[in-house]
Write a protein that binds this DNA or RNA. Structure first.
Lengths: 244, 244
DNA sequence: CGTCGAGTTGACATAATTCAAGTAAGGTGG
DNA sequence: CCACCTTACTTGAATTATGTCAACTCGACG
């Protein structure tokens, strides 16, 4: 397991061949450590790299003309980040380290070999990015059609759910290294209102907070009020081409 | 041009080989006509098909527990719809015909051949879906961080921009076959407030409405207030594998 | 000619924001 | 080790954008 986080992620879905394993490890050959708060790349800067996260959290966001920020997504170990580079020469969003992170950057040209030599991996990658797209539409519905409390609930549950993908034994609590302002920028709220909603969730016995730690006390109920759907539970791989 | 809408879309980006052309045409071999208002597939139903739109508009949406609806996206001729089938066995969203449409359904198993025999097309498809994902994050920022007027402005400009992809000579007006309630479900607003915002845009001389027709009078300004970014202008194809 | 869906408008309600002030916690320099 | 700053969190009061409710118009359609 000293190998590839990406491969590990894939293998939660499907056993890989040695050859496929090596191909994915190849993508993570170089490694870069980034300090908490440091910018990995900035919106509109030229960008030709993608990143696999090996350790720590990243976040991606865009800034609007009026200076407000929308955090698009948190990114966790095993995630592929910056795939928009596959479509554009400029970064569509900024990437910042939320904690100290270890990332493995690779040039988008490396995708070429993946698509030509490993059609099954390419297809699996495609399926995974579709699942992420659906998760994004869930968030769209969250921002467009649910209350502040529901958005915060869904945000927290999503983090827990996704962290469990790579850490099955995670339990029901995690360290949340975000300010309330950042949670607000992710959920489309103000920091003040995030504060009120979080306390409301505490009041109602749905979560507990100790320093930066969040403990989910009533997961089922949070899922309910947040309208949350776990999109990572199962990916259909029946249609994939055979391994080679 | 009696061939494939999908191929036509791709060729706006990149010239295709004959072989690639045939592969795409193969996906559109069967054709289905669907009446305005009819449901193509329903959320949570088993779903193994993807669709290429040949003519007309579709929309995709999800319903929340409280009965509210979030329209996720409008889909136009040349668009690939229902790609979430690549990840899931159940439909993640509902698809409904906004106008009478002609769609070309194909099984997701047909993607297998695309990934094995046409790596360049697969990679281009991947790049295109990444561009769509970025457009979705733009919408997330729109719902999360911009005013009602800005959301409506962005919604209208996005339609115009995307219709122009396949119809370069479109000019600055289009027929909008949506009720104000539907526009509200797309922008996260109520029908009443959509009404007020549309009239405000008319008042300010930014758009004109004649029956169901929308004319964009001041595109630049709408783009400005809507914080709109055209993500369809150019796709980087430099990294794609060679054609075969 | 009556019904129905969509658009329009005004009055009112409310969720969330803004503003402001204060507290707690952590980091730094003397 | 203490005094000081800074940053985040917390809380209340006032404000505002958007939602809700209700009534009316209009055109399409049977």
């Amino acid at each position: 397991m000293s190998g590839s986080c990406f491969a590990e992620r894939f293998e939660h879905i499907l056993p890989l061949t040695d050859r496929e394993h090596r191909a994915l490890e190849h993508l993570e050959e170089t490694q870069r450590t980034v300090r908490r708060g440091a910018v990995v790349r900035r919106e509109r800067d030229p960008a030709s790299e993608l990143y696999v996260i090996r350790k720590g959290w990243l976040m991606s966001y865009v800034l609007l003309d009026d200076g407000s920020r929308q955090i698009l997504r948190l990114h966790f170990p095993g995630d592929l980040v910056g795939a928009s580079s596959a479509a554009f020469g400029e970064a569509a969003d900024s990437l910042v380290a939320v904690t100290d992170v270890v990332i493995c950057p690779f040039e988008k040209s490396a995708l070429r070999a993946l698509f030509t030599d490993h059609p099954r991996l390419a297809a699996l990658l495609f399926a995974l990015t579709q699942a992420e797209r659906v998760a994004l539409t869930d968030r769209l519905a969250s921002l467009g059609r649910t209350s502040a409390k529901a958005r915060v609930a869904a945000f927290l549950i999503d983090i827990l759910t996704r962290l469990r993908i790579m850490k099955v034994d995670l339990g029901d609590s995690f360290l949340l290294p975000l300010t309330q302002e950042e949670i607000g920028d992710a959920t489309g709220l103000t920091a003040v209102h995030v504060n009120r909603m979080m306390r409301a969730l505490v009041e109602e016995g749905l979560i507990a907070r100790e320093n930066g730690n969040i403990r989910i006390l009533n997961e089922e109920w949070l899922v309910r009020i947040g309208n949350y759907i776990n999109r990572y539970a199962e990916i259909d791989t029946a249609w994939l081409p055979p391994a080679n």
